[in-house]
Write a protein that binds this DNA or RNA. Structure first.
Lengths: 260, 260
DNA sequence: TCTATTTGTTAGATTACTCTAACAGAAATA
DNA sequence: TATTTCTGTTAGAGTAATCTAACAAATAGA
């Protein structure tokens, strides 16, 4: 029932985190501030405070200022750290805009386990200490994304030579197009070479790098391609199917990605 | 109220995803299978199916097999993809063990926005196409983590020269130890050089790369250090404070990390 | 066909959370 | 001091989710 590691729900974790934030900048935390910051009605805060006090995570008496206990402080800080790490990952690594990143992080923070948290922190330490990685991400990956409506993964040759291409038809250096695949044979997806719209649609349908597709039936101008993915047949119009680029080598089927 | 982008709750998304998984391997989906896979009682499944049917995400009639509608299929697939991406990120990049990664992904999947999802997918494409990045992560970062109880970020010189060190006292090449910091001055954390226990404790307390710390009062053998972080004073025993390594340059305070 | 087992549903309770509306206490103002 | 405003609480309702226990329908076995 109660989520995550603390034995409390995500909602209560949010209240703790909010109290922590407020106390970090003001001398006292009041019901009003909490309600405002969390965008809930003050009437929702009171019962939440009671629940927290019951669990001895805050000190709370009617109509009085709210304080975190030692235990509550620990959870609040952990939640806050989780939030920061996720938000930084989304903005600094993936390049998501701040607001969206905050939204996502705000919800995911309650479910990042301690070990994941610790590794994510290590990743930032590694990133800060490793200029090559920093450059690859800042320049290579970021450049890949900058032409938002353009074909996405695209590197400057100086950063990552194998990936370089000029967006004309030199695109598939070693990649195989889904539409050129032999019916009945299967490959792993290397990348999606589509505008943001089609790209999103394909990705949400499961066409992500590493996923295994089998061409069931080739299509034509009016006939959609049929491909099998995750055990399901899916229809793809030619103009969509064209965007799917495959790793040229038939994989060794030693791993999963197809079973679970 | 209803989470995420679909206008349905995480719980219902889980049911859809489960139905999707089952139909990917079996001809039919029954209440029993769903209950088993989700580890809930069959009595919880029936009302969930009613809620889903009401929203026209499944076709369901009493005591009959369950089918996804077109709309339901879309959501199920999107959730599934979100799950896969997160799980892959946790295992392939961060090196979390599979079971833990599945657990985390299972909950976070409901909150990863479409744009974040798309960028994460792009990251894998970039990774697959960029051998340098792959090497850095597989060798550099992974090596950093392999001695789990050891000092964490540690690179082999061949991969990332600046980071290389041999775990003797050559550790801080250019880094400043927190315990050597001038009282009153502030620096950003570069990394935590501690065993897994102390490391986890520090990170959960907010001592992550990039965070700004101010040394309030230096400590001694019996006297804990006091440092300010996120507006809060924290006590750190010497042996813990020793593990905190700082970027040597006083930062330009142009960004946040201290305000929000 | 009759019975036992499996499977699915219902009823009823519980928990957690939210809201609005009404009210009460405290502080600020006149 | 009296009154208005701000702040916090309570009451009452609603939603979503879960459970156990009892029951009903379908299937399988004898």
């Amino acid at each position: 029932m109660s989520d995550s590691k603390n034995g409390i729900t995500g909602s209560l974790e949010d209240y703790l985190e909010t109290i922590f934030r407020i106390l970090g900048r003001s001398a006292v935390a009041r019901v009003r501030d909490i309600a405002e910051e969390l965008d809930v009605s003050p009437a929702s805060v009171t019962p939440a405070m009671k629940r927290l006090a019951e669990k001895e995570l805050i000190r709370y008496s009617k109509r009085n200022y709210i304080e975190l206990t030692e235990k509550g402080l620990l959870i609040a800080r952990r939640t806050m750290t989780s939030h920061k790490l996720l938000s930084r990952f989304l903005t600094e690594i993936l390049g998501i805009d701040r607001e969206q990143a905050e939204n996502d992080a705000c919800e995911m923070e309650h479910f990042l386990s301690e070990s994941s948290m610790e590794r994510l922190a290590a990743f930032f330490e590694f990133l800060a200490a490793c200029p090559e990685l920093q450059i690859l991400i800042d320049t290579g990956f970021a450049n890949c994304l900058e032409g938002e409506t353009e074909h996405l993964p695209r590197c400057s040759r100086s950063i990552c030579p194998l990936m370089a291409h000029d967006d004309d038809n030199s695109e598939g250096f070693e990649l195989l197009r889904l539409i050129d695949l032999q019916p009945g044979s299967s490959r792993r997806i290397a990348r999606i070479n589509a505008g943001i719209q089609a790209r999103r649609q394909l990705i949400e349908s499961g066409f992500i790098q590493g996923a295994n597709v089998i061409l069931i039936r080739p299509g034509g101008s009016d006939l959609p391609f049929i491909v099998k993915l995750d055990g399901y047949d899916q229809e793809l119009p030619v103009e969509i199917a064209e965007c799917v680029l495959l790793h040229p080598d038939s994989q060794e089927m030693g791993e999963d990605e197809n079973e679970e």
